[in-house]
Design a protein around this nucleic acid. Structure first.
Lengths: 145, 145
DNA sequence: ACAATAAAAGACAAAAACATCCTTATTTAA
DNA sequence: TTAAATAAGGATGTTTTTGTCTTTTATTGT
């Protein structure tokens, strides 16, 4: 509902990569996709987008793969989501009206705005690292073995 | 983000029909679509779904059209949304994990659950009629003329 | 240098969402 | 009782999203 498949895979992949970022080895796309149960090539494309947006780092060649810098680990989820879904996604009218505004609101405007703020707050208040830590400490899961 | 196009059109159409429900004449699909700026045939199909689900009433033939009973006007938005998007939409995992649960939650589980509850509350707390009234009193708009 | 490895990039395919058009069934006014 | 009106239903088309496959480019260990 909230996220597209693209966004779901992107978040899951980023969190997995983050969870591996203590290791010195970089993480390959194959390993990532196995651990988040996402389609190989499709996910690779999403990671390209994130890499272009400097939310991930990557290296080609032998022993290459994906990894995250300390700075990247500290990015809040909202940055990921906006990179994938586009910045507008969190400001568009809930009923899809082009002209919806404070002055001429749709019938759902205020209620929707408040929900949207909740969502923004959630996405701003959680970093990739936060989620990775919850994985590492066994408090959360991306895959049930 | 929150709603599909199908759902947006469905809500807008229902609200428009509701806003016309004081009149004795029923409202035709043509008029509805003009006033909510939605595609004619596509919207007609959505209204079929809502009618089958008894969220709208319709009548064929001369002077036919769509209308809503007092009871239908009192339905909360959540019923509309569930009829269109499916009941599961408001209980699925935010990261798209099949196995996500309280016991084995995804890294976003609790935050997402709280957002979802907000959304449910909003959708349960607003009736079609509420939205129609805001239209009728000029407090809200579906179309800017 | 060279072979192996891994991400990047591009072309293509399938499925789902969105949208249109045409026919059918029903109702009613004349 | 018939013609017109209007929703319902079915077939089809388009676009977007999701997914795969192949080739290219960069990197590195030997």
């Amino acid at each position: 509902m909230l996220f597209s498949k693209t966004c779901e895979y992107g978040i899951r992949a980023a969190v997995y990569i983050a969870s591996q970022s203590d290791k010195t080895e970089k993480t390959g796309i194959e390993e990532i996709c196995e651990n988040i149960e996402a389609p190989r090539h499709f996910t690779a494309k999403i990671l390209q987008i994130l890499t272009r947006n400097h939310l991930l780092s990557s290296q080609k060649g032998v022993n290459g793969g994906f990894y995250m810098t300390a700075e990247q680990l500290q990015q809040p989820m909202i940055v990921l989501v906006e990179a994938i879904e586009g910045k507008e996604v969190l400001s568009k009218c809930g009923l899809g009206l082009k002209a919806c505004s404070e002055v001429e609101p749709c019938p759902l405007h205020n209620k929707y705005a408040s929900i949207r703020n909740n969502i923004k707050q959630m996405l701003s208040g959680v970093t990739i690292k936060d989620m990775a830590v919850s994985l590492q400490t066994g408090k959360a899961f991306l895959k049930i073995d």
